Amino acid sequence: MEIRTRSIRSLAYRCEEFLDENGKPRSISYPNSLALCILDALFMTGSHPTAIDNVVGRYTARHGGTDGAKSLRYSIAAAGGSEKWAHEVICNLKPAHTQPGAMLRAEVVDRATRLMADHGIDTVDDLLAAVGDEPSTGRHANEVARAWRELPSQKSGISWRALLMVAGSDHFEIDHRVRGFFGWPFGSYPRMTDDEVLELISATADYLDVDDRVVKQIVWQISHRRLRPDPKRKELVLPYFLDDALDEEPDWWSGTYDPEVRHEADEWASIFEPEYSTAPFESEEALESQRTFEPKGELAPADEDEPDWAAPYPLPGTTGAAPF
Rank of each mutant, 00 (worst) to 15 (best):
A145S: 15
P31S: 13
E267R: 08
V215S: 00
T204H: 05
P135R: 05
E294Y: 10
P274C: 01
P301D: 05
K84Y: 03
M1Q: 12
E282H: 11
W309S: 14
I90M: 00
S159V: 00
F181I: 00
E88A: 12
T45A: 14
W309F: 15
S71P: 00
L72F: 06
A79E: 04
A130T: 03
T204F: 04
A141R: 12
R149A: 08
D126V: 03
Y240C: 01
F324L: 08
T256D: 01
G23V: 00
I90Y: 01
A78I: 05
E260P: 01
A51I: 08
V56N: 09
Y74W: 11
E275F: 09
G168P: 01
F281W: 15
T45W: 03
P31L: 08
E298I: 13
A321F: 13
G317K: 06
L227M: 05
P49M: 14
A279W: 09
P323T: 13
K234A: 14
Y257H: 15
L315G: 10
D209P: 00
V109E: 02
P295L: 07
F241D: 15
G187R: 04
L36P: 00
R146F: 06
M103D: 13
R6Q: 14
P316E: 15
D308G: 04
T5F: 07
F181S: 01
L198P: 02
P295M: 06
T204Q: 02
E249V: 02
L11M: 05
N92S: 13
T193V: 04
P301I: 04
S71T: 13
A300S: 12
G65N: 15
A35F: 12
K234F: 11
N92F: 00
V210A: 12
V89G: 04
D266H: 07
V237Q: 09
Y313S: 11
D195V: 08
H224C: 06
L208R: 02
A96P: 01
T193I: 02
F272H: 13
G68I: 10
H171T: 05
R213Q: 13
H140L: 10
E173D: 05
A69L: 08
D206Y: 08
Q217K: 09
L242W: 00
